[in-house]
């Protein structure tokens, strides 16, 4: 089914403090489409994980926040685009317990479990783009 974008907003992430601002923006959008509290929390947590990754590995990037709809479902789509080093082995990065940074290693797979749809594209030396969608009921 076709995904229709109802509203679009971009935000630049370059410093640690941007994370809190960004989280609030995501929360606003999710509240607007009346997403339930648990799904909202999952979405914002996932967003927080990804934006931290962006800061840690690529010194920041750009996030697009979109309100999307598909049939009777409304949702939030977030696109995290950075120009960092890229990820060499995506399947490996998506495995539970794997991490190159000094985190717990539940970054990507953990994040994927929190959202309805998760897509990652990366070119070594060019950058990484992660797209997530959280549907209102899902």
């Amino acid at each position: 089914m076709m995904i229709v974008v109802l509203n679009k907003d971009t935000i630049n992430i370059s410093r640690e403090q941007d994370v809190v601002v960004f989280r609030n923006r995501v929360k606003e959008s999710a509240t607007k489409i009346r997403m339930g509290l648990v799904n909202q929390t999952k979405l914002i947590t996932a967003a927080s994980e990804l934006v931290r990754n962006m800061l840690r590995y690529a010194n920041g990037g750009i996030v697009t926040i979109e309100v999307v709809s598909r049939g009777r479902d409304n949702g939030i789509r977030l696109v995290f685009a950075d120009e960092g080093p890229g990820i060499k082995d995506i399947p490996l990065a998506m495995k539970d317990g794997y991490s190159t940074g000094k985190s717990l290693g539940l970054g990507l797979p953990g994040t994927k479990r929190l959202v309805s749809e998760f897509d990652i594209k990366s070119v070594v030396g060019t950058g990484t783009t992660v797209t997530i969608i959280k549907w209102n009921n899902g």
Binding site: L37, Q40, T41, T45, L106, G110
Partner: peptide
């Protein structure tokens, strides 16, 4: 810990 936070932490694997 808020219920929604607890559920999210478990899903995340923490």
């Amino acid at each position: 810990i808020q219920p929604a936070v607890a559920i999210t932490l478990i899903e995340l694997g923490l």
